[in-house]
């Protein structure tokens, strides 16, 4: 269960620094789509979703990586997978995740006593999902945050977030209370022969 860190080198060419070619390229793409989708008979790529009609579920049209309202996953025993490591609240650029940790007094040790996301502040960047080491927080609900009448309704607590959640069996953070007894899998990326 070691961590692999991919280092990406960012080199900027003169072409990147001038900006203009990139802008023109972008404009060209837009223009291409514009003409393709207006001039071709049958309207090109555009798919008209009949939004609101009973047999149509917009979720079917959303890509898998669509980022919707957050949800919190749970373990097989029904407890929340989140271990209050604060990775998500640390990485969150909007600072809209508030967690208080508590001692679970079992081998999982730590759990959030409260877990609050202010969906009004959230910029839907998905960093929290990337940062979570335990597959506890996900944004794959394909639900938009529905407008609410008061601000308070848009502040989701642990219960609201877990209502949308489902079971997850990722190992780190605990597939089951005794996940440590499972032999770790040899990392497939490991190519070097120890001999």
């Amino acid at each position: 269960m070691t961590i692999g860190v991919k280092k990406v080198s960012l080199t900027r060419t003169t072409r990147d620094q001038i900006f203009l070619p990139a802008i023109l390229e972008g404009l060209l793409t837009t223009a291409r789509h514009f003409f393709k989708n207006t001039l071709t008979p049958g309207m090109g790529d555009i798919d008209t979703i009949r939004y609101g009609e009973p047999e149509v579920d917009v979720k079917d049209y959303y890509p898998d990586r669509f980022r919707g309202v957050h949800r919190l996953m749970y373990r097989e025993d029904g407890s929340v997978r989140c271990v209050a490591c604060m990775c998500c609240s640390t990485v969150c650029p909007a600072r809209c995740i508030y967690i208080h940790a508590e001692d679970r007094r079992d081998d999982q040790e730590k759990a959030p006593a409260s877990f609050v996301i202010d969906e009004l502040k959230c910029v839907v960047c998905g960093f929290c999902v990337e940062a979570c080491p335990c597959d506890a927080i996900r944004m794959d609900t394909k639900e938009h945050m529905v407008p609410t009448e008061t601000r308070e309704e848009a502040v989701l607590g642990k219960i609201d977030l877990m209502k949308r959640g489902g079971p997850s069996v990722a190992v780190q953070g605990g597939a089951a209370p005794n996940y440590r007894e499972v032999a770790p899998k040899r990392d497939p990326r490991f190519e070097h022969d120890p001999q």
Partner: peptide, 21 residues
């Protein structure tokens, strides 16, 4: 680990359990 090892695990046997908390 971050400074000096930084490699993937080679262990594929269960780890020894000891008292937690």
């Amino acid at each position: 680990y971050m400074d000096h090892d930084h490699s993937l695990t080679r262990v594929d046997v269960p780890k020894i359990r000891k008292p937690k908390h």
